[in-house]
Design a protein around this nucleic acid. Structure first.
Lengths: 206, 206, 206, 206
DNA sequence: ACAGACGGGACATCCCGTTGTT
DNA sequence: AACAACGGGATGTCCCGTCTGT
């Protein structure tokens, strides 16, 4: 076996890291990046601030680690969905489902919004940001998406596949935000309806 | 007339208020609510913090006043657009134009996003928040929008007019955010294309 | 009159600055730079940490301001001493007195030692450091000191006037330190004796 | 024999201790006591903080152990020098050489300065401090030094042998500090020149 | 003996809002 | 109305020393 037995230290480390990221998720979503307090995150995780700084370099670092972790699991989930599919039409259907589910999620969209705002306002946050971007964005996106979903329509008003994915996810984040903002007007059901419509419009799937 | 002639003093006061709001706009958009510093706002306006507290009660207050001011001028502009229109089709066209312009604006969408986030996280912010909401939202919205744009489609997947307006504006805010986040992928031109598609999808105008 | 009446604000500012620097002197000397607490300095001055940051940019800044202030008053005092002197011999006597007094001072030597250590360990502390240096050190030192004290002896073992001044002040700082370290062995009287001997040796005044 | 053969285990332990002290020397000299980080010391020694706390009780303890170790080896070296000497004149010459070498050393003087400052500021540091003092200072110093160097001159301005030794070493520490502070003005060559002059002045050796 | 994780607690820094002044 | 100084209080960051495990 190449995987050696994990020691208790390693187990503890892993457990703490997950506890911290779990707590960070709650607090960052609830309070936003700036208002989130590391002390509260630690407390929620049953640890102290000292533990946070044993695992992460800074508040920024734990935030980015959280986004990265979400992105990776998100991507893995999607890959699984699509692996079992054989036709472009099926891919599109799977992708559509992913979109709708994404809009309906109450956590990830808000986290992504925070991340977008943070990134715009800290363009020099450095290499860590690069890694997170790579976890969200793929290389050579357009061809990858074209292979998945078929090429984009041609024409003046057409939108490339990659742009559609990005803009779509961004807009759906805001849709969930809106649902939280005016829950009476924009229910979770409405969110799903709208998400579907937007997907169809962006990817022009008759 | 109840409105008396403004004195020189009042003019000066009014000017300061506008200077402050103008500076606040820049700083709040650039840094976000939490990171924005009142000192910097004052400095940019050529005043000091004392001036801010002469005109506003708190940081929250100047932020909300800014959003309210934008909302009112926005609404006035739209009203003007529509007043000259006579048919529902023309209304829809005018409204579509408003949507596309909104998405292309580089300030107001970001401000609105900040406002949404702030509101969600400070639901008990009190009466000031109410006034701002009223500036953005109308009473009896659905019927107002229906009168303007015609009734929404019926059916399981249909979306009410009011919900469409809210969700649409929210999503377009995020679209502009995306344009700032990935300018290479989502250009300002793409923003307008997508804004149009989303409008058509939401309001189902063949 | 060119000097306009100071406002109460300016008076208060000046007073607070002096209070803070006075308190800083006590604490920095007693505890050293690292162990000194800004809170204690503020408290001793009857102000709060907020006040410190209204007057100085950082802990480093208040420390350097303190050293600079001391250096300037020190230099002014010496200049006064020497102005009234007419011959080189009288200058030397005045300088010797200054040396002995310096060694006997219980504050300034320790402050200078802290400053030396700080400077060595923070070579990149920037322009502020330059200003402080200029307050302590003169330009074109050698000729200035030569004019004051006569030229240095020639020969292999001779020491330039400027080097003698610097090394001398440094060593006397440590002498005072030693007096604090072993008060029984090195009394304040011994300090003055030794300071005189060292001066004579360095400046080779028979 | 009470000293039994060291086992392999004990050798390893001894080696670690020396590694740690070597690393500590570098870090304490470079950063000063307060700024020195135990983590960095451990890393430099190729160990972890756990190892430090296996060998020493605290940060203070390793610092004092370091000073003590230096002092002991220093004293041993000097004893060797002097053992081979037969006349007081030769002793004085040997002692002078020791002084000049001390001033030229780039480590021990700085360490001693740190120790002096630390001691002044922690007078109640307890028994550990006593041990270190005994390593540096001898009992019945004056008679010991008088035997070595001849009695001190009599007279108002005379300085006892013991005081001269202490004050001398203290001042030379600061001399090396000055060389690091203004290397252009006070070169290592100048340091040796001045050290010699100061020695002659303090011990009044024609 | 040594490694690694974590607690615990301190502290510089920051900035909003208040107070007295002009 | 506007300025300027200051209080007040929070919080990210840091690091020593302990404790468990190997």
């Amino acid at each position: 076996m190449t995987t050696k037995q994990p020691t208790k230290h390693e187990l503890r480390t892993q457990e703490t890291r997950e506890l911290l990221l779990g707590a960070a998720e709650q607090i960052f979503i609830r309070d936003g990046y700036e208002q989130a307090e590391l002390g509260e995150i630690a407390e929620l995780a049953g640890r102290t601030k000292g533990a946070i700084y044993g695992h992460f370099k800074s508040k920024e670092d734990i935030f980015l680690a959280l986004v990265e972790s979400h992105a990776l699991s998100q991507r893995a989930a999607m890959r699984k969905h699509i692996e079992s599919s054989t036709s472009i039409a099926a891919n599109i259907a799977a992708f559509r489902q992913f979109f709708v589910d994404f809009a309906g999620d109450e956590k990830w969209p808000l986290l992504l919004l925070e991340f977008r705002l943070y990134t715009i306002r800290h363009p020099d946050a450095g290499e860590r940001l690069q890694k997170v971007h790579e976890a969200i964005i793929r290389q050579d996106e357009e061809s990858a998406y074209a292979a998945l979903l078929g090429p984009a329509q041609k024409g003046k008003a057409s939108v490339s596949r990659a742009a559609a994915v990005h803009a779509g996810l961004g807009m759906l984040s805001a849709l969930q935000l809106e649902a939280k903002f005016s829950p009476l007007l924009v229910s979770q059901g409405t969110v799903k309806n709208i998400a579907g419509k937007v997907f169809d419009a962006l990817f022009e799937t008759k």
